[in-house]
Amino acid sequence: MGQLGFDFGVQPRRLMKVTPARLATFDDCPRRYRLTYLDRPTPQRTGPWAHSTLGAVIHNALRALFELPAGSRTPARAAALVGEQWSDSGFADAAQAAGYRTLAKAWVADYVEHHDVTGEPLGLERWVSAPASGSDGPSTMIVEGRADRIDERDGELVIVDYKTGKRAPDEDEARGSQALALYAVAAARTLRKPCHRVELHHLPSGTVAAAEHTAESLRRQVARAEESANDVRAATDTLAAGGDPDALFPARTGRRCAWCDFRPSCPEGQRAAPAARSWELLAPLSRETHVE
């Protein structure tokens, strides 16, 4: 008599590892996903983008700030850290870069001035991971990623994500962010504490857009991620079996083709929109910004 509940003739399916960045890339443009993660050697890319440089500098400065003792986290020190982390990559020229360096220093100084930065985060650029499923069945994937900051408040985890774009986010954006939801799921598993609150901290405006997830809202986000992950797996497996890469990973063209990193390697993208200059996605400098 065989053992009940076991089927030794079925090979368990390997769980696919997914990150919010990978899923978002595939959803935005399957062609860009293939060029980023699958094609080797990596196809030709554009040069650096100033808005990406600006975001990276501010993220690095805030990480360095929270690595200091709480008493040293002053507005002046935060501004100085921007200078230490600064890069001119992607800016039009030295004068433009200097203007945005001054602006970035003001952003982080204001952030420290108006927010409580004395607490000790549980994670800074912390990698978190968890098996997950969009249903009540067994896990179908492993969701993972690197959260900007993970706080602990009143016994629960809070996911904090820094934003430096032109537009200030709102509660709906925080609630609808798949990345924040997946970080919450993975952080709860990794750090063994409940996690429902997610926050977008917008440095240019000082806005904090927050949302409180429920178990059901997190499940919906995981289910949506699972659908994308299944599409990625099917396309990737078919490609490995000799499928047509252009058919499996079609270009999804639009305005964003103007600033796609892989524009030099994508004829469809080149036809879809004129090339953006590397600094065009920056918010305009205010007239009050004075170069130091």
Rank of each mutant, 00 (worst) to 15 (best):
E156P: 12
L4M: 06
A225F: 03
H196M: 01
R287D: 06
G123V: 10
A104C: 08
R255E: 11
T19A: 12
P250S: 10
G83R: 00
R149M: 14
D231G: 03
L38K: 06
H290Y: 08
L285K: 07
R32W: 06
G242H: 06
R175A: 14
G242L: 12
P43A: 10
D93Y: 05
T140W: 15
P274A: 04
T190M: 01
A168W: 08
P20L: 12
L124K: 07
R220S: 09
R224S: 11
E120T: 13
H115C: 15
P245G: 12
G155W: 15
L282T: 06
G269Q: 00
V143G: 11
W107S: 07
I58E: 04
P250A: 13
L157Y: 10
G55Q: 10
G137T: 14
S205W: 09
L200K: 11
A56H: 01
E212P: 08
L285V: 03
A241E: 09
Q178F: 02
A247K: 10
L200H: 12
G254L: 13
C266Y: 02
V232C: 07
A210L: 12
L203E: 15
A247N: 05
M16E: 12
D88S: 05
L200S: 07
A251P: 13
S87D: 02
V160H: 11
A186G: 00
C260S: 15
R40V: 07
L200N: 12
A168E: 10
A209L: 04
Q85A: 10
A215Q: 14
K17R: 13
D88V: 03
W86C: 00
A174K: 07
G145I: 14
V57W: 10
G5K: 12
L203W: 12
I142K: 03
E199N: 05
L65G: 07
D161W: 14
R34I: 04
R63I: 03
A273E: 04
R224Y: 11
S133H: 11
L282K: 01
A283E: 04
S177T: 13
L65M: 06
L285M: 00
A188S: 01
A106I: 09
A258C: 09
A174W: 03
R146E: 14
F8Q: 09
G55L: 11
P204L: 13
R32P: 00
